[in-house]
Design a protein around this nucleic acid. Structure first.
Length: 458
RNA sequence: GCGGAUGUAGUUUAGUGGCAAAACGACGGCUUCCCAAGCCGUGGUUGUGGGUUCGAUUCCCAUCAUCCGCUCCA
């Protein structure tokens, strides 16, 4: 089916209806840009994270996981550059209601002669007032005062609100890998090149457009940092560009819904940056990023912490700070892409449509739904449910006609349904129905277990 | 954070300054051996908080949320 038929509205409605994702704090009227995963959604999201971990840790020869604290020493963010540059001085034009960055206005007005990064907020305000810097949109001079928008969530350590105790909720997970670089290297005795992976929450106090879970103030990142020697970084950069895309293809993404997008404007730490974009219902948008972060992060931590962050090459006895190839993908954003990619509406005979979520069996919340054809078969069905639940997530439904129950499972993407009938009581066999082909096969419960176990391998 | 629009059952929508409706869905019961069958029964402080009024879901204000545009986006 054509991608244009998938709308964000349909995805949001299905998610709420089927327990995938609900609006955050809904009974209090909601909380902007937060969403809660429901019983089905949490399974799907966990499966996505597990699939990613399998590919980049479990099946990787030389990558290791960490789970670092969300709250980090505030000096970490001085070193990473976030304290200085993760906030923007902004002003609103009262005439045309647009918002502008004060630093950009000053830089443009002075034709590059004044470096706004070296000015305080008061100095920037003074410059704009003195030179009557006009709004680039409407040409008028009628600004609100400069307000600083810091994208890091602040909180404070301890019971008093003294500024010395200010700490931040991490705005990215990457620093947790960098500050543990030496710990991981020593304890695993890993030799460069090697990788450190982490899945965890990050927080950004952004003024965000909605687009469901595409951008939220609290989100989960899956990151893999590959430490390698300068000179080999270009090669590894290309390698991870390919790996990142291969992972998506293995999850079932169509090649034509993915594309590479090189950055023309690079972040302060990056030598090269490339996104993989996905064709969301809102258009092509970033799904993940591959960055060549050079030795920027480890060097900065060496500078700020005073600890030597170099790696001593055991073959050459050469000491150097490794380069880092970062592969970063948002778990929630990948969840959204997975929902969009899986969504399908099928026309059936008689003008009916059924919604089917074509999740890869490894990603689907429930692998099997157990459905007794009649309620008086419920006892046997529950017995089989318990048998299957030892191996994978199973769900159970005995309400309504069998066709209605199939469709409920189709809407949450359950790949297989087994029905229990009177023959099951006789010989223990069940009918296994395939979500995608709608074909039915008779088999024993043991055969169901081995069949499904094979299908849910990624 | 700015401008505009919107907010009624789980969902989609009616409707009214004077007892709040329908369809679908959900749940319980009857029926039913494989793709939305049928019958019976069950549902709401009209987003939240104020104000005007004898009386507000309806009019006014605030607030919260959603959508569109701006802005932002390591």
């Amino acid at each position: 089916m054509d991608k244009k038929a998938v709308t964000m509205d349909k995805i949001v409605n299905l998610c709420k209806l089927r327990g995938i994702i609900y609006p955050g704090s809904e009974i209090y009227g909601g909380m902007g840009n937060t969403w809660d995963y429901g019983p089905v959604g949490v399974e799907v999201k966990n499966n996505i994270k597990r699939a990613w971990w399998k590919k980049f840790v479990q099946e990787s020869e030389n990558s290791f996981g960490v789970d670092a604290a969300i709250l980090m020493n505030a000096r970490v963010w001085d070193a990473s550059g976030h304290t200085a540059s993760f906030s923007d001085p902004k002003m609103d034009c009262k005439e045309c209601k647009t918002r502008q960055r004060a630093d950009n206005l000053i830089e443009n007005h002075s034709k590059g002669k004044v470096n706004p990064d070296k000015l305080t907020q008061e100095e920037m305000q003074a410059y704009i007032d003195e030179h009557k810097v006009a709004c680039p949109n409407c040409g008028k001079f009628n600004w609100t005062p400069i307000r600083n928008f810091n994208l890091m969530f602040q909180t404070s350590r301890g019971v008093t609100d003294e500024s010395t105790n200010v700490i931040y909720l991490r705005p990215e997970t990457a620093q947790g890998e960098f500050v543990n670089f030496l710990n991981v290297q020593r304890t695993t005795r890993a030799k460069v090149p090697f990788g450190i992976a982490q899945v965890g929450k990050a927080f950004r106090n952004e003024i965000t457009p909605g687009n469901f879970i595409f951008r939220t103030i609290e989100f989960e990142q899956m990151e893999h940092q590959w430490f390698c020697k300068e000179g080999t970084d270009g090669e590894w950069y290309e390698y991870y560009k390919k790996s990142a895309k291969d992972f998506l293809l293995a999850l079932g993404f169509k090649e034509e819904h993915l594309r590479y997008h090189d950055h023309d404007k690079l972040a302060h730490y990056a030598k090269a940056a490339c996104d993989i974009q996905y064709l969301f219902p809102i258009g092509w948008s970033e799904l993940n990023g591959i960055h060549n972060r050079t030795d920027y992060d480890l060097s900065r931590h060496q500078e700020y912490s005073g600890k030597a962050m170099g790696y001593l090459d055991p073959f050459t006895n050469e000491r150097y700070i490794p380069y880092v190839i970062e592969y970063s993908i948002g778990a929630d954003r990948l969840m959204l892409a997975t929902l969009c990619e899986a969504y399908d509406e099928q026309e059936l005979e008689g003008g009916d449509t059924r919604v089917v979520m074509h999740f890869h069996p490894a990603i689907a919340a429930y692998k099997v739904a157990v459905l007794p054809l009649q309620k008086n078969l419920g006892e046997k069905a529950k017995e089989i449910y318990k048998q299957l639940a030892k191996y994978f997530m199973v769900t159970y439904d005995e309400a309504g006609s069998i066709g209605k129950r199939y469709r409920r499972q189709d809407e949450i993407g359950t790949p297989y349904c087994v029905t229990i009938d009177f023959d099951t009581l006789e010989n223990g066999t069940v009918t296994l129905r395939d979500r995608d082909t709608m074909e039915q096969v008779r088999m024993s419960v043991e055969e169901v277990i081995s069949y499904v176990n094979e299908k849910i391998l990624l």
